[in-house]
Design a protein around this nucleic acid. Structure first.
Lengths: 237, 237
DNA sequence: ATCGTTGATGTGTGATCACAGATAACTCTG
DNA sequence: CAGAGTTATCTGTGATCACACATCAACGAT
């Protein structure tokens, strides 16, 4: 009986609108600063305004979108200070998750990460940046899930939703993301996890986040004509 | 001209509903597990269902309320594991904020904190627990604001919204919260901040959070008949 | 006695509408 | 030719309604 039928999508319309918008945002498919209107999206999705407006409000509540004083909703324009602060927060919070994953995670974690890192290296070699980004995300979240702290995981997901668009945006403009350095750092993290050295793993992860942020800043500000960042970790500490 | 008129409240209805619910939740005025319906609240507030349902969805998005599979919204019932995890997260995140406040905050911070701590001691002496809780909150947030990280501040506010109800609930049941110990810990934090010792300040703050959580667990579980927690910090580390 | 059915009631969801605020182009006045 | 006022248009907000789903109690069949 069961195998003759396929499960249905019982999510509410609002939920589906939300997830579609969330994905689009995460992949940077909306331009920063772009304003997003209820009726436009409703028309694009073929729904009424109702589910769209609730999805938008939810995204605003999660800080994935911002609401102007005029009450219209826009994609947050890039702001250096906000980005720097987010990076600092991520280094701390994701570092904490990594510490716990290293100390108390399953013994199989290091092997899982090795496999993902190998896939990432292959993706780099073949040049599919989209796949590289995806593998990088999988690498990080494999660690965070191993920390076995569901609420922390959600906080981290939210932070990625806020930072993600910038990276996607940057590589969409055709820049070669320096992921090869990432591979090396990842290996160091794996080694630390294998030795259950939470401190080293956490520091490695923070370095990974920091290096990516520094690259992004230099790349982004090059187009915006501003000072490149010094290659010293302390500037973010 | 200007001084003849007083400014109006231009917030949307939804916003006002949201803030009223948020306050009520934070003060523990809703029982854990209680289900909250749109029409009831709308009737109580004298509005239509529309702004209420949007406020509720916002609170769900912020994890201040939970949505059951039946799609009705309830106040999250107390769950020990969730509380323990939240405490751990708070120790880390609020510790980070404290570290920065100590290192880079204004020189006046220590004096401000001393004043608040004195007020708190007075409130303890006079027995107004509500005032004690309020002073305690002011103490903590004076530190977090000094860290000058607006996004981090919002994350912390959200964490307090999730943890706050339990403390309010407990003291509402007539328990004497052991705040006198808090005063001592606070003094240690102030001393560390005065010396710009971020590490010590952050450890002191984590201890403050941890001690409060431990008291709550013992108190709460005493009613629920379970094992009291050992008085060792490592159990949470 | 147990399980399934039926109904009543209460609930969230989504569509639709009326309306006020915002914005920008335009017009009129000085 | 400014600058204040006007207008047209687009936007979010809030009210209201129809509907489907959830829940639970009373009832009936087995």
């Amino acid at each position: 009986m069961i195998e003759k039928l396929s499960p249905l999508d019982i999510r509410t319309l609002q939920e589906r609108v939300y997830q579609q918008l969330r994905d689009a945002l995460y992949q940077g498919r909306f331009a920063a600063g772009e304003t997003v209107t209820i009726r436009n999206i409703a028309a694009a999705l073929g729904t009424s305004a109702m589910p769209v407006r609730e999805a938008l409000q939810r995204l605003v509540a999660e800080k994935a979108l911002v609401q102007l004083p005029s009450r219209s909703v826009t994609v947050a324009p890039f702001a250096l200070e906000a980005f720097t602060e987010l990076t600092r927060i991520r280094m701390s919070i994701e570092g904490m998750a990594t510490d716990r994953a290293a100390k108390y995670g399953p013994a199989s974690l290091a092997d899982t990460l090795d496999a993902i890192n190998a896939e990432m290296q292959m993706a780099i070699a073949s040049g599919f940046t989209e796949d590289v980004l995806e593998a990088n995300k999988r690498f990080h979240f494999a660690i965070y899930e191993a920390a076995d702290m569901p609420q922390l995981l959600e906080i981290i997901s939210n932070l990625w939703l806020r930072t993600g668009p910038y990276l996607g945006m940057a590589y969409r403009k055709g820049s070669s993301v320096p992921f090869s350095m990432g591979i090396t750092i990842h290996s160091r993290i794996i080694a630390a996890i294998r030795m259950r050295d939470g401190r080293k793993a956490s520091q490695g992860l923070a370095l990974d986040i920091w290096a990516m942020a520094r690259w992004f800043k230099n790349h982004h500000l090059a187009n915006g004509a501003s000072d490149p960042q010094p290659a010293v970790l302390s500037s973010l500490e």
